[in-house]
Design a protein around this nucleic acid. Structure first.
Length: 423
RNA sequence: GGAGAAAUGGCAGAGUGGUCGAAUGCGGCAGUCUUGAAAACUGUUGAGGGUCACACCUCCGGGGGUUCGAAUCCCUCUUUCUCCGCCA
């Protein structure tokens, strides 16, 4: 969430930048400032009351020690009023603080100045495109038909075991999936990220830390018995490593990577756009997460973009990069670039990675700080990105690499699959 | 799942009703000494609110209670350790 002093000092900027998301902040910002003023005033009153009663208590102690019990009893009588007052004030303070926090939770992150204004994915800007779109043979198929033809993914079986959106990978399909995970992890660790294996269930505090709660409650699977959530992305357990942490400046930057399955309830649409691997309730993803010094976070962001580009180049998939407009940028993100791979058989672009800089928005929730050169605690910046999400990469490979003889495995993956064609 | 013990600052570890935001040691930082380093010595070293800066307030696992006053007493939850049971 945003910091109140930042809002107070940059009202106009906050309002104009949030307008890029079509978020009218003018009123809520005034409310935040008013609430904060009120909070401070109550806090001061409470502090004064407590100071007074602390002083009296101390005096009573000394009087007892010197055997002046009567005088002490006189003072005791005085404290009951103070107690009453401080109780009322602290209730008021709690209510105010809670109301303020609720307001802050409702304000999304301020987009970076380069983020274009816009409402939906139609307003995203294509900023880069690379790779050749292959010309497919007669009778080329979308991946869900290929999956059936070669018997590598069984959607109906997943349907039987669990329900829609839980595919079963079989044989070479399963092996290819495992190969991709290993390949991505290797690429990420070569680039300096430390590999982690993270829990797939997280508690409520972690969901608040990264911002899935309170705004995305319905999108996560929730075990109410133990009050745990199935992770929608490795971002949640990965970033929460740093909740309530104060780092030394020289520990920055930190880069971690992890493979996890991801679970999303996604009340979505139906039809061709969600067919096959396009949209799932359970899918695999390899994530990269960075904790950065604020001065370096956009540098690091560019580094992450290049990193993902390198992988896509090596896989020789046609892709493009989009700069998301304000309206399409995630709630806690200041800037997001999406990667899309071209699915030749479906004749459409599929999102395969999303790289975001959260600046200090998550860090403020997480209380993730570092000791800066002045010895002061300062919020760090957090970033993350998919490197990469499996299903649509798999869809892209199946569709773009299909030949009349079968599906050719990209060269970089052959050492991981142990075979070079699915037929 | 059953029985018992425990949770204190970066770490270790004292503290059982007032003078305790908390001894001491280690670690960190700064300085003295040294050509430099080590050692030794001196100082400093938790977080949040608040203030121009002080003052002041809150925090000893979380929540609640007793008391004029709680790290210390009571209740409750969570976690950790030991023993038993079960088990990939």
């Amino acid at each position: 969430m945003l910091q109140v002093p930042f809002i107070r000092e940059n009202k106009d900027l906050v309002i104009t930048r949030l307008a890029k998301r079509n978020f009218d902040a003018s009123q809520i910002i005034e409310e935040v400032i008013t609430f904060d003023e009120a909070r401070k005033q109550i806090q001061t009153e409470l502090d004064n009351t407590l100071a007074e009663s602390n002083a009296i208590s101390k005096e009573i102690g000394m009087l007892y020690k010197s055997g002046q019990a009567e005088k002490a009893n006189v003072l005791k009588a005085k404290t009951s009023d103070l107690k009453e007052t401080s109780k009322e004030l602290s209730e008021k303070l709690n209510a105010k603080t809670e109301a303020l926090t609720d307001l802050l939770y409702k304000i999304p992150n301020v987009p970076h100045e380069s983020v274009p204004k816009g409402n939906s994915d139609e307003d995203n800007e294509e900023i880069f495109k690379e790779g050749t779109i292959p010309t497919l043979h007669e009778g080329a198929m979308p991946h869900w038909e290929l999956a059936k033809k070669y018997d590598i993914i069984d959607f109906e079986l997943g349907n039987k075991i669990t329900g829609a959106g839980f595919p079963v990978y079989k044989g070479k399909g399963a092996r290819l999936q495992r190969a991709l995970i290993a390949y991505f992890l290797d690429k990420n660790t070569e680039a300096g990220y430390t590999e982690y294996q993270l829990p797939h269930l997280v508690n409520e505090a972690s969901c608040y830390g990264t911002g899935q709660l309170p705004d995305k409650e319905g999108q996560m699977y929730h075990d109410s018995r133990d009050d745990l959530y199935l992770i929608p992305t490795a971002e949640v357990p990965g970033t929460n490593i740093f909740r309530d942490v104060i780092l030394n400046e020289n520990e920055l930057p930190i880069g971690i990577t992890g493979y996890t399955p991801c679970f999303r309830r996604e009340a979505g649409s139906y039809g061709a756009h969600v067919r096959g691997l396009n949209r799932l309730h359970q899918f695999d993803k390899v994530e990269i997460i960075r904790v950065e010094h604020p001065d370096n976070s956009y540098n690091a962001f560019n580094g992450m973009i290049e990193h993902v580009q390198n992988i896509l180049r090596e896989l020789n998939l046609p892709y493009r990069i989009l700069r998301l407009c304000g309206g399409d940028t995630g709630f806690p993100s200041a800037m997001t670039y999406d990667f899309e791979v071209f699915s030749t058989a479906q004749d459409r672009w599929l999102e395969i990675s999303s790289v975001s800089n959260f600046e200090n928005y998550q860090a403020n929730r997480l209380k993730l700080r570092f000791k800066n050169s002045e010895g002061k605690n300062e919020l760090a910046h957090t970033l993350n990105g998919s490197s990469l999400a499996l299903p649509r990469v798999l869809a892209g490979i199946l569709e773009n690499y299909q030949t009349e003889d079968g599906i050719v495995i990209p060269e970089a993956l052959v050492p991981y699959t142990g075979f070079n064609i699915i037929n």
